[in-house]
Amino acid sequence: MATSATLSRTSAFFREVIADTPTDPHLEACLQCGTCGGSCPSGPDMDHTPRTLFAMIAAGMREPVLRSNTPWYCVSCYACVERCPQDIHITDVMYTLKRLAIKAGYASQSSAARAPGFSQTFIDHVENYGRSFELGLITRYYLRHRPLDALKVAPIGMGLLKRRRLDLSPRPIRQLDQLKAILERAREIDNAKSA
């Protein structure tokens, strides 16, 4: 018999999600009220609403959760976090699920398969230059991940160029070596923990 209205935290997957989220997201406090899905701008396009996803996490349904497009359709607007009566860090949980989906190799198979490619292309540019480089980001992202859609974005790209709203070459920061050393050390620390 259930002794509480909140989620069970006994599944291994539930503990995995909590352990990989930066501060305690209070996920076990979820009442399954559905305020999150009701507040979500992309909720109707998600495979599962956040509420459903959290019940699935508690039930240990690791693979279906990590194959869901839901985390990738999260727009990071924090509307759900603001309204959650239990103060659950929903956006942070979505970030955790994205990382776990990439690690498990499921991300490229969800219906939002292009999202990880976009994130990775963005990150590559920041790691190489220290700052975002939009022209490189859109050209490489479309050529590598969505060549057929490149024509659709071309007019907007041209419009940005015409209005001098895109740099033609990246603007690397001065102390790029320092940034790279910091990021490399962070990678080592992360690897040592997950080993």
Partner: peptide, 20 residues
């Protein structure tokens, strides 16, 4: 200064995003 990470960095690597 460098990029803040936008909404992309944290989706791939947690500690690197916070360090950035």
């Amino acid at each position: 200064w460098n990029c803040c990470g936008a909404t992309e960095f944290i989706a791939v690597n947690r500690l690197r995003a916070y360090a950035l």
